[in-house]
């Protein structure tokens, strides 16, 4: 099943949830925030949120800036 992560197409298994996606991306231990189709998914809901085909996932973090 294809989804989009930070604008890039990506294949994930059917039934994959957000926790599994972050593990696959090696981001499980990183401080980040995430929205799917422009809606924020709180950390507490990662395991319950199953990905759907063509979901647009944005994963953000803090970088240097003024």
């Amino acid at each position: 099943m294809q989804i989009f992560v930070n604008g890039q197409a990506r294949d994930v298994p059917e039934g994959c949830d957000v926790t599994q996606l972050l593990a696959q991306l090696e981001l499980a231990d990183r401080r980040c925030a995430l929205e799917i189709n422009r809606e924020i998914v709180p950390r507490s809901a990662y395991a319950a949120r199953k990905l759907r085909c063509a979901d647009q996932v944005e994963i953000i973090h803090a970088v240097g800036g003024g």
Binding site: C32, I60, G64
Partner: peptide, 20 residues
């Protein structure tokens, strides 16, 4: 201290230290 919010780099240097 101010920080900016940007996309996480996917698949690049997973062990790299983070600003925070």
């Amino acid at each position: 201290v101010t920080v900016a919010i940007r996309r996480t780099n996917i698949g690049q240097n997973p062990g790299e230290p983070n600003l925070l």
